[in-house]
Design a binder for these strands. Sequence first.
RNA 1: GUGGUUGUAGUUCAGUUGGUUAGAACGCCUGAUUGUGGUUCAGGAGGUCGCGGGUUCGAGUCCCGUCUUUCACCCCA
Length: 452
Amino acid sequence: MITKPTLPQGTRDFAPDVMLKRNYLISTIKQVFVKYGFLPLETPAMENLSVLTGKYGEEGDRLLYKLLNTGDFLKKADTEDFNDSNTLLKKISEKGLRYDLTVPFARFVAANQHDLVYPFKRYQIQPVWRSDRPQKGRYREFYQCDADVVGTKSLVCELEIIQMIREVFSLLQITDYTIKINHREIIRGLSEFIGFPGREAELSVAMDKLDKIGVDGVKKELVERGFNIESAEKLFIVLGITGETKEKISQLKNTLTVDSAQQGLADIETILNYLTLSDENWNHIEIDPSLARGLSYYTGSIFEVKINNIQIGSVSGGGRYDNLTGIFGGKDLPGVGFSFGIDRLYDAILELDLFPTDLVESTNCLIVHFDQESFDYGFSVLKNLRKNGISSEIFPEMAKLKKQLQYANKKNIPNVLFIGSEEIKTGIFTLRNMTDGAELKGTQADIINQLK
RNA sequence: GUGGUUGUAGUUCAGUUGGUUAGAACGCCUGAUUGUGGUUCAGGAGGUCGCGGGUUCGAGUCCCGUCUUUCACCCCA
């Protein structure tokens, strides 16, 4: 016997029952993106490594999937190249799988900058690949649903991101969640405030672990990273500020008196004010100065969405990156965007049991038959049903009625149409509702009317 | 990339200190029921115990490697 084939680590098949749920998620998200004026875009699964490398930091480069050159991939390599994997890599690999959707998007914008209408709003729903160690809610192949705007610094974009997140969650019936907001300038100000200007990268890494390792853990980590205990204490003067959002902002403004932080706070205030002007409340929103987010290209506001009381990482995140397209030789276009991780959303919604029960896009009607004559007769009836837009099928082989009906049961087909010699003779058919067993007798026209 | 964890029928899991022919439930197939499904009853099929090596008279069980699962770190959707 041949050994069973397995999937590569961290990848999955999506069986029909799973796909129905995933499609529901994707179409919900897509529908909201479209409503806010975003246009679809797709880019190739693979990009040149020159596009991908260096955009995600050292860690990101390690997690990139690299593709061997086609043909004799060792052709360009010399013996001494084998002494260093980085040198060898350049000789044997020129392409890699995309790591996220933002960088390919930036590449696209840089390449087509003169043909686009600005502000350019695009959405993109495609898989990405990272050679990370799989864990719960972490896969090596997963989907991102991105929506980005380039070509404007307007904070209306940030407003709309918040609105879209809320709208998607509302449609998905998710009620207990938090949209965390921060600003790169606030982090910069924080770094300055605690006496270590310019060290916000290290500060971010430590702060980001607050949920996990607690106040003392963060203080310890800061000291290990070369900050001192006084600066750590000072940090928590700011992070210790709690309260209603309005109150929190004014306290932050009074405490974090550094210029950069003031700018960041002003931006957030503007965004929230836009929300008020849109007749919306500030529910689900939390300003969190410790929110860091990994990607180094963010320059302004930062978002992250967590579903509360669910053991899963963030399900959505994003931010403003005012100079991403510049690295591809284009003019520096400001941009802002965010992304839903639908694999995690799926896991969360499954755990919360919030998937609608009526997602089965099953056949509406199955034609069952008793003998060769009724089987043959069934084709014209089937054609007629389909002509009237009724999703239907005929049991494709001669089989006992029991088997045919069991097929309908297993496939959740709600209606069964019986065809036998009696029916052919009289032109009166029996339609059975498989849920409650109720039967309806009538002509083909009656049946079609009922099924529509 | 580092350290732990997991793998037995289609599925969820039993399987004693290493000891004959590896079990259960559900599912699947057949029949009771040749023009009527779900229920019930009777019967049946299905496993070289993830894969490869080793120790042993003997391995599902112990050891090593590998793949997979899962968890922590790193990082992240």
